[in-house]
Amino acid sequence: MKPATIINVVVVAALLVAPYWLNAYWVDVLNSIGIYAVLALSLNIILGYAGLFHMGHAAFFAMGTYTTAILNTQFGIPVLWLMPLSGMVAGFFALLVARPIIHLRGDYLLIVTIGIVEIVRIALVNNVFGITGGSNGIFGISRPVLFGHVIRTPHDFYYLIFAFAAITVFFFLRLENSRFGRALNYIREDDVAAEGSGIDAAHYKLVAFVLGAFWAGMAGTIFAAKMTIVSPQSFTFWESVVMFTIVILGGSGNIRGVLLGAFLIVGLPEVFREFAGARMLIFGAAMILMMIFRPKGILPPPPRTFNLDFLSSARGGGK
C-alpha cells in the first residue's frame, strides 16, 4: 500500500472510533472541526481552485443558517429537509453579489468580500424584514430527525457532521479531477491564457462562487440544527478569516491540506487552552513562519496525475 493510502485508512478509522473514547466536550470540538472543514472545503473551490481572494464566506454560511432557522421556526419544516433550500438561497445570494465583482482581482476582491460579510451581519443585527430576530437571533430550532432517530447529543451530531464531510470530500475530489476543476485551476494560473484557450473565465468564477456558497449554505443547516440558537455573532468577519486561514495554511487547492488545516486551526487552540491568552500571538507567529517557510501551505496540491493506460491498451488491442 502507498503511504497516502495508509494515512487515509488510519485517519478514517481514528475518526470512526474517536467518539467512543472522547467525552461530550471533545466530541463537540470535533464537531466544530467538522463544520469548519466543510466550510473550508467549500471556500477552497473559490479560493483554492480558482484563486479568488474571497474573505466573505461567512456571509454565505449565514444565509444558509438563517434560511434554516427561519423556515424551521416559522413553518416547522423539518431541519434536514431545508438543507438543499438553504444551499440554494446561499447560492442565489452569491450569484447576485458575485456577478458585479467577479472581474476584480486579488486585494480588491478581498476588500469587497469583507464588505459583504459585514453588510450581511449588520443586516441580521438590524432585523431585516423583521425575520432575523435582531442581535438576539433566533432560537428554538428543532432537532434533526434521521431515519426516525432524533439527533441531539454531540455524539449524534458527530456522525451527521462527519458523514456530511465525507460526502463533501467524495464529491469535491471528483470535481477537482474534472473539466470544471481544471478550468478553475487554469483561471487561477493565468486567466488570459485560459480565455485564449477557450475557457469562459467569468462564467467559471461565478459558478465557483455559487457552488462554494451552496455548500456553505448546506453547512449552515447543520450548524443551525446543532446550535438550536443562531445569532449574528456567529457570522463576523473573524469567522471568514478563520475559514480563509484554514485554506491558505492547510494547503490551498488540496483537499487533504484543507482538512489538516481545519484540525490545526480549530483543534489546536482547544488542545492548548492553558495558553488561551497567547492564542493570537501564537496564531500570528505560526502564520508568519508558514508564509516564510511554506508559502503554499502545509500540504500544497500534488501535481495532477492521469491514467493513460487505456491509450496503450486500446492501441495494443487494435493490432
Binding site: 471528483r174 470535481l175 474534472s178 473539466r179 470544471f180 476543476g181 481544471r182 478550468a183 485551476n185 487554469y186 494560473e189 493565468d190 488570459v192 491564457a193 485560459a194 485564449g196 484557450s197 477557450g198 475557457i199 459558478v207 457552488l211 501535481p303 495532477r304 492521469f306
Partner: peptide, 27 residues
C-alpha cells in the same frame, strides 16, 4: 503564456476544454 506550474499534458487539456460539455453535476 503557458500554465507554467502545470504539466505539458494539463496545458494541452486546457485547449480541449471548449470542445467538451460536462459540467459540475456530470463531474
Amino acid at each position: 503564456r503557458l500554465f507554467q506550474n502545470m504539466s505539458a499534458l494539463e496545458n494541452v487539456l486546457a485547449g480541449c476544454h471548449c470542445r467538451m460539455r460536462s459540467g459540475v453535476i456530470g463531474a
